[in-house]
Amino acid sequence: MSAIGSSDRGNEDLKERVNAGVRRAADVLSATLRASVRLEVLLVELFSGPDLERKARELQMEALCGVQLAFKGPLSGVALLLLPLADAVQLVVALTDDQPGTSELDSIRIATLVELGSVVLNGVMGVIGSGFEPRVRYALPVDLDDPVEALLTSRGPARDVTAVGVKTRCTIEQHRTTGEILLLFDAGSVERLWTVIGREVGVRS
């Protein structure tokens, strides 16, 4: 596991892209919910190999729920938004004036969560996935059915997958939760990402 360091220009640019995506997502959420929404990036990390396996096991220890957005094309993989289950229920209840009733995520609440998650992931992937030719194609966002570990397994050996972990704090009105955006890039994708980033950095400089 390695934190993105300021010495690495590409990493810095990736971090900047993540921040820009998150800001965009916050704007869309504020407009959609007609509420004050603040998204803050706390930490951006890169994982691969054993670090990623450890990260997956760590995430598996928590009761999480989430939204996944698969993408393919020049950049292929899946973007995940992971939230603590209890926080997710509270968030949905608070935003929709739903009756607290139960502490579970039923299909109606899941749909709401998927919309919220898709806004965040759209923001981040909209920035990260831009600049590719041909275009990155996206599937419809869906809720995360399987454990993160299963998702990794299904995408092949962890050593072939590179992940960008973004720890994000979300504050909506009085409600605050800390979630994690996990971008899993299939083999080869991340290299293409560095290329695009490098090219754009070169253009700017």
């Binding site: 957005l69 949905v92 739903d98 109606i108 709401t112 919309e115 898709s118 759209n122 909209g126 966002p141």
Partner: peptide, 18 residues
């Protein structure tokens, strides 16, 4: 939100509760 779709971007979801 639709502007991004018209640009060939990411799909949108509109849930029943929101």
């Amino acid at each position: 939100r639709l502007r991004n779709v018209f640009a060939g971007g990411l799909p949108l979801v509109f849930s029943s509760q929101l």
